[in-house]
Amino acid sequence: MDLINLSQAKVFGGWHKQYQHTSTVLNCDMRFAIFLPLKATPASPVPVLYWLSGLTCTDENFMQKAAAFQKAAELGIAIVAPDTSPRGEGVPDDPDGKYDFGLGAGFYLNATQEPWKKHYQMYSYVVDELPELIEAHFPVTSVKSIAGHSMGGHGALTIGIKNPDKYVSISAFSPICHPSIVPWGEKAFRHYLGEDKSSWQQYDTISLINQYPVTTPILVDQGDADGFLHEQLKPETLQAAAQTHRVPLTLRMQPGYDHSYYFIQTFIGEHLAFHAQHLNQHSA
Rank of each mutant, 00 (worst) to 15 (best):
N163I: 06
P164C: 12
P164S: 07
D165F: 08
K166V: 13
S169M: 12
S171L: 03
S171Y: 03
S171A: 09
S171K: 01
F173L: 07
I176D: 00
I176H: 03
I176M: 05
P183R: 08
W184C: 05
W184G: 03
W184I: 03
G185V: 10
G185A: 06
E186K: 14
K187M: 08
A188V: 09
F189D: 00
H191E: 12
L193R: 01
E195R: 12
E195S: 15
D196F: 07
D196P: 01
S198E: 15
S199L: 15
Q201I: 08
Q202N: 15
Y203P: 01
D204Y: 07
T205L: 06
I206V: 06
L208Q: 03
I209S: 02
I209E: 00
N210F: 08
Q211V: 08
Q211Y: 14
Q211F: 08
Y212C: 14
Y212F: 14
V214K: 03
T216F: 09
L219G: 03
V220D: 00
Q222G: 04
G223W: 00
A225W: 07
A225I: 10
D226G: 04
F228P: 08
L229A: 04
H230F: 12
E231S: 13
E231V: 14
E231R: 13
Q232D: 11
Q232I: 09
L233G: 00
K234R: 08
P235A: 05
